[in-house]
Amino acid sequence: MVLRSPVEPLLAQARDMVPAPGALPGELRFQPKFNGYRALVFTLWSAPGPLVQSRRGSLMQSRFPELVDAAADLPDGLVLDGELVVWVEGRMSLEALQRRVVSGGRAAAGLAQEMPAHFIAFDLLQVDGQELLQVPYGERRAQLERLFTDRELSARWTLCPETTDVATAREWLTSWRQVPGVEGLVPMPCS
């Protein structure tokens, strides 16, 4: 099955503490929860081009032309799940991102230059036109990491940090609480 927009992504809940080992069944992975806009990026070169979809199904690629341009680095038939963020003066700015989301036309192009958006990818939902929703998360994550390595993705594309080490997760939670735009951690099963 090939995924087509709109796709409704699963929602994650940030935690403000790291569960104790054994508190939840199975081994866990931890990722930071960013305060941005949840989005999916579709690379459908047979269609009008790459699509950027909000979590509610709205298409937003006209508001983020720099991501559409950067999608040329991605293979056809891909669906990435992640978070749109905008950095202003070295900090994530939800206000700037909200301004970007409501812009269009020339304003969108100007804002793309002034305050470019970045996509923090944390899941791979489709590759080579093959839907991966039934594939265990660990396998999807490995494919996502290979995509970043093989394509040498940078600039607009960021691979979301992840750890299975509880001590590292606790350190992240402590040190990142001071970082505007990071809301907490998202624990998830390794499989």
Rank of each mutant, 00 (worst) to 15 (best):
I120V: 15
R140Y: 14
L133P: 02
L80G: 10
R140P: 12
R63A: 15
H118F: 07
E83F: 04
G129R: 02
D69R: 08
P75F: 00
G129A: 03
A109E: 14
Q61D: 13
R140V: 06
E89L: 08
R100G: 07
L111S: 11
V135Q: 12
V102K: 15
E89Y: 08
R106P: 10
Y137W: 08
E83G: 04
R106M: 09
W87I: 11
R141E: 03
L125V: 13
L67C: 04
Q98V: 09
G105Y: 00
D69W: 00
D128Q: 09
G90F: 05
E66L: 05
V68D: 04
P136H: 13
L74C: 10
P75D: 04
P75W: 00
Q134I: 00
R91S: 11
A70H: 13
L133Q: 05
Q134H: 04
Q130S: 09
G138E: 05
V88T: 14
E131A: 04
A117G: 09
G104I: 09
V88D: 14
A117M: 02
Q126K: 03
L111C: 10
G110H: 11
L94F: 15
D128I: 00
F64L: 06
Q61H: 13
A107C: 06
E131S: 08
G138W: 09
E95D: 14
Q134S: 04
R91I: 03
Q126R: 05
L132R: 09
H118Y: 09
L84M: 10
M92D: 07
L59H: 06
G105E: 01
D128F: 00
V135K: 06
Q134D: 11
H118N: 09
H118K: 14
D81L: 03
V68L: 04
F122T: 10
A71T: 06
A117Y: 01
F122M: 08
D76K: 01
R63V: 11
F119D: 07
Q98N: 15
S103W: 09
L74V: 06
S103M: 07
M92T: 13
R100I: 12
P75V: 00
L124M: 05
M60D: 06
A121Q: 08
E131T: 00
Q134E: 12
F119N: 10
E139I: 06
M60V: 12
A108Q: 01
V135A: 04
L67M: 04
S103K: 11
A96C: 05
P75G: 01
S62T: 15
P116T: 13
G138K: 03
Q61N: 12
A96Y: 07
Q98H: 14
D73S: 12
L59I: 10
S58I: 06
P65S: 00
M60Y: 13
G105L: 01
Q143N: 04
L78H: 12
A96Q: 05
L59R: 08
Q134M: 02
V86E: 03
P136D: 12
D81I: 05
L94E: 02
D76Y: 01
D123H: 07
D69G: 06
A117K: 01
V88R: 15
G110R: 15
Q61T: 10
M92H: 06
S103T: 13
V68S: 09
E95G: 14
L124K: 03
A70G: 14
G110S: 11
R91A: 12
E83H: 02
R91N: 11
Q134F: 03
D123F: 05
